[in-house]
Amino acid sequence: MPFMTVRHFTEADIPVRTELLRENKYQTNLNDFAMSAADLELADGMRRTIESGHHVKRLFTMCGSKGQVVGFSWITSIDWRSQTCELSFAVLPRYRSGFGFKAVEAAHEYLREQLHMDVIINQVLSHNTMMLSAAELDAHAQIRAEYDSYTVGQWRTACYWTVTRDDVRGRKQREQARRQEIADRVRAGVQGLS
């Protein structure tokens, strides 16, 4: 079984996601609207999404190798015609150190491999360096939107960027070249020793 899998969000996942929406780091890094919403209201919203909102929003559950729920991802601003969507994700606190990157990677792969999305929009508030350092964020950002939001007592700047199919292909080719270079170097070293 792969390290991380993506499955459709179901009604049974609603309580766990509701709890996550109210968690402090989530509110700081994404939004704090859940603070002002009742549980029932949040649950109704999620239920509507999975029952009839497929065209505009989709929710997914990220699972570890034993099938345990590790976090959630969701896509909004879906433009089916242009094969574009905005990806958001949130990992449960206890899995953040080990699973964060894998969860993001698995969500991206699912969107490209199965839903046939070509362009994925990322939005990260600039103080949030859980996945990318401040320097990496700067390098990626195509748009920096100041005063985008005010979460947990602070003004936030949002960074937006897209990842296209060509970007992914380029990154994979670079990684492959780097692996090849290391292998060549190791081989050359071994031959030099013998």
Partner: peptide
């Protein structure tokens, strides 16, 4: 002018971005 989010829309067979503007 805050930047261009690349390649988000297909229009007449080609991909285009959108340009973000703001007043603060």
């Amino acid at each position: 002018e805050e930047g261009t989010l690349g390649a988000v829309t297909v229009h007449e067979g080609r991909r285009h971005g959108y340009v973000s503007f703001a007043r603060i």
